[in-house]
Every structure is written in structure tokens, then in C-alpha cells.
Design a protein around this nucleic acid. Structure first.
Length: 423
DNA sequence: TCTGGGGTCCTAGGACCC
DNA sequence: TCTGGGGTCCTAGGACCC
């Protein structure tokens, strides 16, 4: 059996660890620029605030019900995440950190232990030590763990935060209850296709012929139905190196000055390089993109991106900065209101195993000591304290809803490295 | 007026090769 | 006039996740 430990309304729960008076109140956490709702407390959900909606559309409702809004504080969330992960991991031999607020535990080999009681203890310890409420779903496959977890959250009164989905009878009942759009791996597009074909519940999917599933969903459709039947298709993954790194931002205000946008993308390029150096890899490809505000239909729209394959792999801020600049020059067009831009690097090789092109200049090794020194100083004195001349060191995104408690948190905490992966 | 950010994987189609 | 077949690799786009 596997268990899935999932933090309840994670970002909101993190806010509550700083300010316990937020308990039992409607609370939401907002994305960059205080743009979208990215986490909601139970009370906020009950007010009918959907996930990922633009905050401005709900201003009235927030005011009317005194909903507490917070800007996202990823330093805090990463630190709390690490705490939860460490506690949960201490109970098992094998685990997989799935996202910032979820991890799978391998319960194989716990044959003579009551899994339900064991998970209750895990849940309790996380609550006492990290102050984060979690739900735990136990099942023979990862996909069913997700289902079990949903059941816990949907019926909080019936279970004490833990549910085991093990017998065929329980599984059948659960799948007849679970809406198709709530199955792990069914997104918006697939949900529409499913409903067009009369598939409304997870159970309906199991009645469809494999040929049909293969056609509509491709290879993971087949895996998915097996997982739902309790036949294990997905193992726990061990942490794997990243395959791409992206730094992208929406700007608080639209930018019309070329140099302003250039400064932004160059900064994003430096952040990418920093993160490459942190994992001791170099990249072979760099992509830059810029785009206007897709919601402003009254303004001319433009979006473009360009990728360059580097002659030699690098993680030097200077070399990557040059490429970013070159790509930016090629795609930037005057006369538009830019709202978003980003830099993506991929195709990585280890720093110490670069294959060098004989016919191209390679200054990576000259840059590396300077770069590492810069990283060390920034680690000691704070982000962006030492930077390249092309960076302004200013943000063009806003976080207006920070709290005094947070300033205190930042002062008092040496933050652990983030240690989770995205899928 | 105001609409996030960072990932992975799969597939179809084109380019190219023999 | 008539114009093969099979394989690989790369890329862009679409789907999904949190």
C-alpha cells in the first residue's frame, strides 16, 4: 500500500502558522501581483470562491465577508513544506515528494501494523510539530491514494483525516461517487470529451473499451484505468534532476519602453543561471519570450519566442545574459504594451562534463570562479546584493499584502533549500 | 483599472537519411 | 506521363499536474 500525505489548503495553513487568529476565518492567498486566488481556506471555499480566479472579480465578496487576503510568500511555504516532508519521511523507508504540499509514502512491509493508526500518528505529529493540518489517503495505487485523499477532505466529519481505500467493494463505491473531472490525470479538455461520451463518473470510464481509451487519452489512459482498478502502474519516483528551468513573470504594469523589458529578461536570465549553478549543471539551450496582455482585446496583441542552441554549454550569468540579449533583440517589436516575459533554459549537462566545441570560443571556465563567488556572497548577504550591471535589482511585480509577522519570520529563519519537484 | 508561475510528458508532422 | 519505403531525430503544440 501507498499513502498520500496532502496538506490542507497549504498556503493558507502556512499563513495560519504565523497568525493563529486566522483559524476558522475565510482566508485566501494570492499569486504574484496579487492577481489570482491560489489557495483558499475551507471557509473561503464555502463562500463560493473558486480556485485560480482573478482576485479583482471577488473584491466585493472579500469585503462583504471580511476575507483575509495575503500575497504569496514562497520562502515561508518552502520552509514549512520541508518541515512536513522531514516529519513524514521519518516514518517510512521509501517516499516520493510529489509537490510542495504532497508526498507519497511507501507502506509496503508494514504488514503487521495497523496502517490507519500509523497514519493517524503521522498526521498528529505533523500537526503538533509543524502546525500544518494534513489529510492522508491510503490505497494500493497512487491514483487511488488521490481518490482516498479526496474522500477524506470531502467528508471531514466521517474520518479523522485518514482514509483507507482497500477492498474492491470500497473502491467500486468510491469510483461510482467520484466525478470524472476529479480523477487524477483528467483535465478540463479531457473532462469535456468524457462527458460528451457519457462518462460522468470514474466508474463509467472503467466500462469503456480499452481501444476507445487509448484513442482518446493515449498511453496514460490505459495506465489510468489499471490504477483505478487497483493494479499498480506507477511506482514511487526517486528525485530526478530537473530538465528545464524557467523564470517568467507578469509585470504589474504594462511596459512600453524597450530598455525596461530588456532589463527584465536579462534579470530572468541571471536567475536561470544562478539556479543552474546551484545544481552544478550547464545548459545547451536558451529560450526567451515576450508577450502583451492577452486580456486586453482593445490593444494590439503580440507574442513571440525564440530559442538558441549554444555553441558551448554554460551556466555563466554573463554568457547567458549575452544570449538572452541577442534573442530579445530578435523578437522585441516596438509599439506594444508588454505584460509578461520569461527565460527558459534546458538541455542540461553536468558542469564538469561539458563537451567543448573546438571551433567556438569557450570562456565558461574563466567565468565560473567569479560566478561562484557571486553566489556565495548573495547567499551570505541576501538575494541580488551582488549582481550584474544590467540588473536593476528592482521587481516589477507586487506583493502588497505581506504582514509584519512575515518580516519577523524572514529575520529569524535561515531557510532550508527547497527540495521538491514539479510534474 | 485589476487575470500566476513552474514543471513534465506525449504526439504529430516535418526534415533528413539511406 | 510515370515518382518508394522505412527509419530517426527534432520541434511545436497540447495536455496534464500543483
Amino acid at each position: 500500500m501507498y499513502a498520500l500525505v496532502d496538506c490542507n489548503n497549504f498556503f493558507v495553513s502556512c499563513e495560519r502558522t504565523l497568525d493563529s487568529s486566522l483559524e476558522n476565518k475565510p482566508v485566501v492567498v494570492l499569486s504574484n501581483n496579487d492577481g489570482c486566488v491560489v489557495s483558499r481556506s475551507r471557509e473561503a471555499k464555502e463562500l463560493g470562491i473558486p480556485m485560480a480566479v482573478p482576485a479583482f472579480k471577488y473584491k466585493e465578496l472579500f469585503k462583504k465577508h471580511d476575507v483575509q487576503c495575503f500575497s504569496a510568500k514562497f520562502e515561508l511555504y518552502n520552509a514549512k513544506s520541508q518541515q512536513v516532508i522531514n516529519i513524514a519521511k521519518s516514518f517510512v523507508v521509501d517516499s516520493e515528494v510529489y509537490s510542495i504540499d504532497e508526498l507519497f509514502l511507501d507502506l509496503t512491509g508494514f504488514k503487521y501494523i495497523n496502517l490507519y493508526d500509523y497514519c493517524l500518528v503521522i498526521k498528529e505529529k505533523i500537526w503538533v510539530e509543524a502546525n500544518i493540518p494534513v489529510s492522508i489517503g491510503i490505497a494500493p495505487t497512487k491514483t487511488l491514494c488521490k481518490v482516498a485523499n479526496r474522500i477524506v477532505k470531502e467528508f471531514p466529519k466521517d474520518f479523522e483525516g485518514v482514509y483507507i481505500l482497500d477492498t474492491p467493494e470500497k473502491i467500486e463505491k468510491a469510483l461510482k461517487w467520484l466525478n470524472i473531472e476529479d480523477v487524477w490525470g483528467i483535465g478540463r479538455r479531457l473532462a469535456i470529451k468524457m462527458k460528451d461520451s457519457g462518462v460522468y463518473k470514474a466508474w463509467d470510464l472503467l466500462q469503456k473499451p480499452e481501444i476507445w481509451i487509448r484513442k482518446i487519452m493515449g498511453i496514460h489512459g490505459v495506465r489510468m484505468i489499471n490504477e483505478l482498478k487497483g493494479i499498480r502502474q506507477l511506482e514511487l519516483d526517486s528525485p530526478s534532476p530537473k530538465k528545464s528551468i524557467a523564470v517568467t513573470r507578469s509585470f504589474m504594469e504594462m511596459l512600453t519602453n524597450k530598455e525596461d523589458v530588456r532589463e527584465r529578461v536579462e534579470t530572468f536570465g541571471m536567475y536561470c543561471s544562478e539556479r543552474l549553478r546551484k545544481q552544478n549543471t550547464c545548459c545547451k539551450m536558451v529560450t526567451v519570450f515576450v508577450q502583451t496582455n492577452r486580456f486586453r482585446k482593445d490593444l494590439p496583441e503580440y507574442r513571440n519566442s525564440l530559442t538558441k542552441i549554444l555553441p558551448n554549454p554554460t551556466n555563466s550569468s554573463i554568457l547567458i545574459g549575452r544570449v538572452v540579449n541577442e534573442l530579445f533583440e530578435a523578437i522585441y517589436k516596438e509599439g506594444f504594451h508588454y505584460k509578461r516575459a520569461g527565460v527558459i533554459v534546458n538541455d542540461f549537462v553536468p558542469e564538469n562534463a561539458r563537451l567543448i566545441n573546438l571551433f567556438e570560443e569557450d570562456t565558461q571556465n574563466q567565468h565560473l570562479p567569479v560566478m561562484k563567488a557571486m553566489d556565495a556572497m548573495n547567499k551570505k548577504f541576501g538575494k541580488d546584493k551582488v549582481r550584474l550591471g544590467s540588473m536593476s535589482g528592482k521587481n516589477t511585480f507586487g506583493r502588497s499584502k505581506l504582514s509584519p509577522e512575515y518580516e519577523a519570520f524572514l529575520k529569524n529563519n535561515t531557510l532550508p533549500e527547497a527540495n521538491f519537484r514539479f510534474h
